[in-house]
Write a protein that binds this DNA or RNA. Structure first.
Lengths: 236, 236
DNA sequence: CGCCTATTTGACTCGTCTCAAATAATGTGG
DNA sequence: CCACATTATTTGAGACGAGTCAAATAGGCG
């Protein structure tokens, strides 16, 4: 965990437009940029842990992070995978409670940290920001309702197909023939997204390979047939 | 569905303090009260349906409502049960999308309807309101993450115990010996909360009866031992 | 009061989990 | 940069929770 240098101003950040900051007043953005710190996290580093109290908000400049909840017997349930341009940790800050989830890097990741007071001030002074946050929270809630229904009703095979489809976006894959890019997650993490046992997940990946939906190279999973995968996911 | 008469002003409503309206400016509250309509819904009536567009916000004055998502093969997943004092339908309004879920009354229910424009105006003019909404949405998200983890990891028996525990609050039960009040839900609805088949649910209720955790009177379920039920739920 | 629907019980099947062991991959230190 | 140690992945066998289908019973609502 080392300080990045030089600090990049939020106004000029490459991921600015994909965050809430895109439609903020420029003045509040500059103000928020003032006290932020920018840090590089190594792979598999915990950024914050369930049960601790948020001191501010993180903005992902580069890298990917898993948000998860540790359930009974230490088994994790991954709630979402975040990528560059995503904000994280703001919900617990708003609800003024402990983090309900933990965050851990999946690869080397650069994070900007904005102290609570600065962010809250921006929230008060910029009505646009609060509206876009409300909107985003509402969308997240809708997504969660979807996930809940899927988890309750669909068999593992369909859930896995759905998860892979979702990860195409997370890993910026175009999912065309001959693409060498792929999803780089441990089998255990993938199982914890889908909500199944690692062994079950592996068996299903094997099936998908035989059905020419995916290919694997070591740990990496390449999507070979997105359309068919979506059909298997049985989105209804 | 008939109009209630006379209309009750929001400022004087008995459920005011349990909603967002509790810490709103009185002036915006009066304004919001202006154009609202108050309606009595019969049992098992659909208030809004997944896929339609919200025209405003509902406030539950009396009664209970299930919020659910219809999954594959028409099987419903109940996301939450709302009771008097709860607001509903505001998320889809904020995210400016179609309702991601449906709402149906579980009993005769009185609902106040506040048109979108009035509510949005109140939101703009009252910073306290937007803060309390952000806070509430954040809490909901945390609850949903919990539900997701439970659904993915716990066996049906534990989930049912957890659901019953939660319903104690929804049905305002004190869960003491000799209490004649109970949870009044169809077995199917209860199964759709827990995320299981109706038959499995019934078998488990039978077990719980033998273990003296609950008693039943027809459809009604009385909680006999809340503490033990929580232990069965294995909250960890 | 009686019909219709909800609930209950039984038998059977199947998906998914667990445990155990073999193999492969990853990343680390010399 | 290579070899090794460690961890992750894969495969197999077996068990069990939970779902499905079918039929009987009971309850609630008109």
């Amino acid at each position: 965990m080392k300080r990045e240098n030089p600090q990049l101003a939020c106004e000029k950040c490459s991921v600015k437009d994909s965050t809430f900051f895109g439609n903020m007043e420029l003045s509040s953005l500059t103000c928020m940029s003032e006290n932020k710190t920018c840090t590089v996290y190594k792979k598999n580093q915990v950024v914050f842990h369930e049960g601790t109290r948020p001191q501010g908000v993180f903005c992902i400049n580069r890298g990917r992070i898993k948000i998860y909840k540790t359930g009974v017997e230490g088994k994790d349930q991954i709630i979402q995978i975040l990528k560059s341009g995503d904000l994280m940790g703001y919900r617990a800050m708003f609800s003024e409670e402990q983090y309900p989830v933990s965050a851990e890097t999946l690869e080397e990741t650069t994070l900007c940290f904005i102290p609570k007071s600065d962010f809250m001030e921006a929230l008060s002074s910029d009505p646009k920001l609060s509206k876009s946050i409300i909107k985003s929270l509402s969308k997240d809630l809708s997504t969660m309702a979807d996930s809940l229904t899927t988890l309750a009703q669909k068999p593992v095979r369909e859930r896995l197909a759905g998860a892979l489809t979702m990860l195409i976006d997370t890993y910026d894959l175009d999912a065309i023939e001959g693409d060498t890019e792929g999803i780089n997650l441990t089998r255990e993490d993938l199982a914890n997204i889908v909500g199944t046992a690692t062994e079950t997940l592996i068996r299903l990946l094997h099936d998908f390979k035989e059905e020419k939906l995916i290919e694997t190279q070591g740990r990496k999973i390449m999507i070979k047939n997105k359309e068919k995968l979506q059909r298997v996911a049985n989105l209804a």
